[in-house]
Amino acid sequence: MSQVITANRLTDGIVVYVGHDGAWTGQLDEAKLFACKAEAETGLAAARDDAKRNLVVEPCLVDVTDEAGGWRPLTLRESIRALGPTVDFLPQSRVFTYAANPVPGHALKPETKARLTVPGQASPRTPELIGATGLSDEITR
């Protein structure tokens, strides 16, 4: 059974495979095939050296089969890693509209934005913010 070596590139997490020249490639079709177990173990040892040098994470062997469209992993997990999700995830039209009238008695809350304040630095909006919260007595204590 043919195998390839796969891992995730450490810089961006992309799934990569050991290529024909020993470099990492992002395409399964460009991966080097290992026909015997001894050759695959030697390749895996080299891939683990790349993991020690922080180029990739978790190199492992994956069983593949030859099909009309190219190489295909035998497990669902590796198929998803190689080919992407198994469901269509294109955006659908929105079910809800933001311009809809609110239910009577349920007013929309105004958006608030978080602010980072540095102790010792006065903000020009401090009195406005204190007055809006109604906590001026508690803040001055």
Rank of each mutant, 00 (worst) to 15 (best):
L116S: 09
E111R: 12
A107L: 09
P119L: 01
P119Y: 01
E111D: 07
P119R: 07
Q121M: 12
A107T: 00
V118H: 06
H106D: 00
R115L: 15
A107S: 15
P104C: 01
R115H: 15
A122C: 08
G134N: 12
H106R: 10
P102R: 10
R115F: 14
P127V: 02
L108W: 01
T112C: 13
L129G: 05
K113C: 07
P124E: 04
G105Y: 02
S123E: 08
L116Y: 07
P104L: 11
P124T: 01
L135R: 15
A122V: 13
K113R: 15
G105P: 02
A107P: 02
N101P: 04
S123K: 00
N101H: 07
R125E: 14
V103S: 03
N101C: 10
V118S: 01
A107M: 10
P127W: 05
H106T: 10
R125H: 12
N101D: 15
L135W: 01
T133C: 11
G105Q: 02
G120V: 08
A107V: 03
E128I: 08
Q121F: 09
T126F: 09
T126N: 07
L135D: 11
A114K: 14
S123L: 06
G105S: 04
A100P: 04
S123C: 00
L129D: 08
P110N: 07
G134D: 02
P119F: 05
A107Y: 06
R125D: 13
Q121T: 13
P110M: 00
G120I: 06
I130L: 15
P124N: 00
A122W: 01
L135E: 10
P102G: 07
E111H: 06
R115S: 11
K113I: 09
P104A: 12
L108R: 15
P119V: 00
A122I: 15
N101R: 14
I130H: 01
Q121K: 10
T117K: 15
Q121N: 03
A107E: 14
K109L: 13
R125A: 13
E128C: 04
P102I: 04
P102S: 05
K113N: 02
L135V: 04
E111M: 09
Q121D: 01
P124M: 02
P102T: 04
L129T: 02
